[in-house]
């Protein structure tokens, strides 16, 4: 999973507008995923044989797919799955990544060298390849899918945290604080975290986007999430043969995945650190 953004820095006014726009789209997507099941509690696997590939109607506001399943319910479920898996794997990756990053910067020496070597080992393989291999070992398992994604994502947190922590910990302010007798936890809380948080947010947004793309890509080539689960990549594969009959139906998951990635990229704002 690679992210190499080069939109200039996030502080200039037009960029913060873009960030706000991204946040707005993202909130709408979350609301869509959360609210639709409350007001439209239709089973995502239930087939309506009288409406196969139907256009939007009162019974099916976003139409139906090739098996007569309601697209509104399926889309909401797919967005919930994507955002949920992304959230869980981003948080899972952040915890060891940040803690080990601080540890490496604090201890230096052998600990730092060993952790550096460990990350080099992970970086030798493209992320998607590692996820694909792990998913191959445990086919159809959500736990393996999210675990594998987290295993790829933690590296970015580690590298960024380590680099930033080294600069902050070497600063005179930290030296003065230490001399005044404050402990490591105080230094981390008062000096390190305020510097780290904005960067971590950016990494988290990029990480979430790459997690969602990876899961969708694997499901698209039929080695990720299995049917009848509603997943954006899987839906695009399933609906591709029916484009000529009902173009609207495949346009929906394509538009949704575009909006998810775009909003996350705009929230992350700016160049990959």
């Amino acid at each position: 999973m690679s992210f190499d953004m080069t939109v200039a820095d996030a502080t200039s006014p037009p960029k913060s507008m873009a960030r706000l726009f991204g946040l707005g789209v993202f909130v709408l997507l979350v609301l869509f995923a959360v609210l639709v099941p409350m007001f439209w509690p239709l089973d995502i696997a239930k087939q309506d044989y009288s409406a196969i590939l139907s256009s939007p109607s009162d019974a099916h506001p976003l139409g139906t797919d090739h098996l007569g399943r309601d697209m509104l319910a399926r889309l909401a479920s797919a967005v919930r799955l994507s955002l949920g898996l992304a959230l869980v794997s981003v948080v899972t990756a952040a915890i060891p990544g940040v803690l080990l990053g601080i540890l490496a910067a604090w201890k230096g020496g052998v600990v730092d060298k060993l952790l550096g070597l460990l990350t080099e080992m992970f970086l030798a393989l493209p992320g998607l390849l590692l996820v694909l291999l792990i998913v191959a070992v445990f086919p159809g398992s959500f736990l393996a899918l999210y675990g594998a994604v987290a295993l790829v994502l933690w590296i970015e947190y580690f590298r960024m945290t380590r680099a930033l922590s080294r600069t902050v910990l070497a600063s005179p302010a930290v030296a003065a604080t230490r001399l005044l007798g404050f402990g490591p936890l105080y230094v981390i809380r008062r000096h390190l975290l305020p510097e780290l948080l904005p960067v971590l947010l950016t990494i988290a947004a990029f990480g979430a986007a790459s997690a969602i793309m990876a899961i969708a890509a694997l499901s698209f080539v039929s080695v990720g999430v299995k049917p009848p689960t509603a997943e954006l990549g899987l839906m695009i594969t399933e609906l591709l043969p029916y484009f000529s009959e009902q173009p609207f139906v495949i346009a929906a998951p394509i538009l949704v995945i575009f909006l998810i990635i775009l909003s996350l990229m705009l929230i992350a704002g700016g160049r990959k650190p």
Partner: peptide, 17 residues
């Protein structure tokens, strides 16, 4: 910016369509 927000498989699908 728009192309970067499209996963490669979706880009491929769009070109095919």
């Amino acid at each position: 910016t728009a192309i970067r927000a499209i996963p490669h498989f979706v880009l491929g699908v769009l070109l095919v369509l």
